[in-house]
Design a binder for these strands. Structure first.
Length: 297
DNA sequence: AGACCCCTGCTG
DNA sequence: CAGCAGGGGTCT
């Protein structure tokens, strides 16, 4: 489940391998993974572009494209959802069993997009549209996005959790008056971008806050601890190149190493690393959470 | 704000 | 072999 640290790791590992390289050909093996435009136009328009650089926004990976050293006005946007992978390979390396799309590069290597569950999507969008949408959150850009079949979530993303903008005062403003569980609020990409189930659970554990607490009931100190915890767990996960449960791989096909440092996620029935109580599980807002009944009130 | 859907491997 | 998991979108 690639979340912010995993997508950031893919960005960092892939960028040096693809920057300034030409995409010579695009092979769409599974039409369902192309979100916009239609698969034929996607192939035709993307082929021939150079990769100017890779950016990340929330869980979205954004490929800046160029043509003849000039910005081409197009970006390739990728969301891996649950089981998507983006791996740089030599042409003679065996394909992933779930290979869905291939970007051929002029040096003979390729970038393989694979996705077991086929929830992931790729979109080829005009860059002014994408950047305008990233900074504004207006209804008009959202409408425009919908009309163009773009990635709707990208248009309404909240602040990056590692940016200063994501502060205790910001989170307090978001939580105030809300009865939804704090965990659901952390997962809502319009409030904070890039947090998924793993890091929401881990941050709540570190902050000592019960995941099902109505957001509005958190006091000032809890809000402060939660902001700090989220930032620290995300930064540490990036340092360890993400968390691999089964599917996630970085841009070079390697596993992430944060798995061993998880305190609660995937550890139900095991002892809490802090107090030894048994980690248990609950459900809020239609999504499950893991927590330590002793440490999280 | 919650139900349901997408999709497929794995679990009970 | 039904049911669950899960990011995020849609529909109610």
């Amino acid at each position: 489940m690639p979340e912010l640290p995993e997508v950031e790791t893919i960005r960092r590992t892939l960028e040096p391998l693809v920057r300034d390289q030409k995409i010579t050909a695009v092979e769409v093996l599974d039409r369902t993974c192309v979100g916009f435009p239609d698969p034929e136009s996607f192939q035709d328009r993307l082929a021939g572009h150079y990769v100017a650089g890779l950016e990340r926004r929330g869980k979205y990976l954004i490929w800046e494209l160029a043509q003849n050293r000039q910005p081409s006005g197009l970006v390739l946007v990728v969301h891996l959802r649950m089981t998507g992978r983006l791996v740089y390979k030599r042409a003679d390396e065996p394909p992933d069993r779930y290979r869905r799309l291939v970007l051929r590069l002029e040096n003979g290597d390729l970038v393989e997009y694979a996705d077991l569950r086929r929830f992931g999507r790729l979109w080829l969008l005009s860059s002014d549209q994408q950047s305008a949408a990233a900074v504004t959150k207006t209804a008009s850009s959202a409408t425009e996005a919908a009309a163009n079949g773009g990635p709707k979530g990208l248009w309404g993303l909240g602040p990056e959790p590692l940016a200063e903008e994501f502060s205790a005062s910001y989170l307090r403003a978001v939580c105030t008056g809300r009865r939804a569980a704090i965990k659901s609020l952390l997962l809502a990409q319009e409030h904070v971008a890039g947090v998924g189930s793993i890091y929401a659970d881990e941050a709540l554990f570190r902050a000592g806050v019960h995941p099902a607490r109505p957001a509005g009931t958190l006091d000032e100190r809890e809000i402060g601890r939660l902001v700090d915890s989220l930032k620290s767990v995300l930064a540490e996960a990036i340092q360890h190149r993400g968390t691999t449960f089964s599917d996630y791989r970085d841009g070079r096909g390697r596993r992430g190493e944060f798995y061993d440092r998880l305190a609660v996620y995937g550890r139900e029935g095991k002892p809490c690393p802090r107090c030894g109580s048994i980690i248990s599980r609950g459900r809020a807002g239609g999504r499950s959470y893991r927590f330590c009944p002793q440490c999280q009130k």
